[in-house]
Nucleic acid binder design. Structure first.
Lengths: 235, 235
DNA sequence: CGCCACATTGAAGGCAGTCAAAGGTGGTGG
DNA sequence: CCACCACCTTTGACTGCCTTCAATGTGGCG
């Protein structure tokens, strides 16, 4: 970890600070500092004392838990502009999960106490924090739902649809996008293992629902995916 | 649903309002109303427009999701003094899960817009909301972890330990407590089904780890349970 | 060019969910 | 107070999804 160049305006990429008056932003910038981490660094470990929270400026970070037999469940993939660990600082104690860089990353770190002080005098910011944490909560409800109630097929189909909508570009009849991580990481995010993911992707290909070439996915049959993803079947 | 008697001070049972000045509390009381529901009523359904949030004054409520094949995953059991659906009102749109009474229940309902207005002028309250949502987030991380990475054995063991610590009383060598819900509901909370729970309880009994009589559980072997719950085994 | 991490495929086994059926329990109303 | 009924619980048999283990293929990078 070491410092890097930093422009206060970079914080505006983050929803939480987007609409903040210039002077508040300046005050915030003084409450923290830039930290850089190479790929595959542990930013914090589960159980570490929660001393503050982070805004990712550049790179990619995964938040995850590990099972006793060292299987990994990714809770969240952090992209530039996202915050992470903000909830941890409000319930004191310790981080409830691991944070590890997937790519070389640059973060802005807020010291807990100073951030909370600023929050006290800034209801607009407080509301933004509430919104941010609430959105994560919603995502986690979805994750519980997925992992507990859906098959790997359904989870994968849903994920592919989301990626296609978010990052896909239409090439004639098919929507094409590129996976942002390795398939092994994707498997962990879906709460499974790489072997199972591999098999499932193959099956989808055999059924002419998608094409796969390295990390490039082409969606041939949106309806088919939707069907698999959640198709509320009547009874 | 119909109104019932209500004393403003009842809201103080809720952590969110515990330390609020009297006048703020009065203002809050005007921003909402009491709603009563008999056992097994749906308070709101997944997808319903999020018009506000609730404080449970009396009774018991479950928050849950349903799978396409109608299996249920309980996200959260709400007890008197707890709030629910507060996160939903900050991201607009709709409730992400079902809320259904397990017992006859009395709630205080806050209308979304008016609550947010009050929040804007009340940083202390805003901070409490952040804390409340953050705690739920932490619980959900635990739930994801449980459901995705742990066996039913481990989940049940962990749950029994928590109940024993929270609500148990020592009777000689054993810690005794009574399950607050039916076993079927417990199964759903653990992300499984009643048959599997039944079998697992039987196995624990056969191994002399617990005793079971109706809803009364006696813990004979705390260490044994801890072992099963998460015992980081060396390798 | 050779290493290493990632990916793929096969075989085998287990955890846990489903289906079915038989008690058990508690609550309600006669 | 008792009888009935709905719901919960338990047990057995079966099935299947998914993980694990093992081996081979492949691409990228030093």
């Amino acid at each position: 970890m070491n410092n890097g160049t930093f422009n206060v305006q970079e914080l505006r990429r983050c929803l939480m600070f987007k609409s903040l008056p210039e002077q508040d932003l300046a005050k915030l910038a003084e409450a923290g500092s830039v930290r850089s981490f190479p790929k595959k660094s542990i930013i914090f470990a589960e159980g570490d004392e929660a001393k503050g929270f982070y805004v990712l400026l550049e790179g990619m970070v995964k938040i995850y838990r590990i099972s006793p037999d060292s299987r990994e469940q990714i809770i969240h993939i952090i992209n530039p502009g996202d915050t992470f660990a903000e909830a941890a600082i409000f319930i004191g104690s310790s981080y409830p999960a691991f944070a590890e860089t997937i790519l070389d990353s640059r973060c802005f770190f807020f010291e807990k106490k100073r951030f909370i002080e600023i929050l006290r005098d800034n209801p607009a910011l407080a509301l933004n924090v509430v919104i941010s944490v609430s959105m994560m909560l919603k995502r986690l409800v979805e994750l519980v739902d997925s992992v507990s109630l859906k098959s790997v097929d359904a989870r994968l189909a849903k994920h592919l649809l989301e990626e296609a909508v978010r990052h896909g570009s239409r090439k004639g009849d098919v929507t094409v996008f590129v996976l942002p991580t390795t398939k092994t990481e994707l498997a962990k995010k879906l709460g499974t293992v790489s072997e199972t993911l591999s098999r499932t992707l193959r099956r989808f290909q055999d059924d002419d629902i998608i094409t796969v070439d390295k990390r490039t996915i082409g969606v041939l049959d949106m309806e088919g995916l939707q069907e698999i993803a959640g198709g509320e079947q009547p009874f």
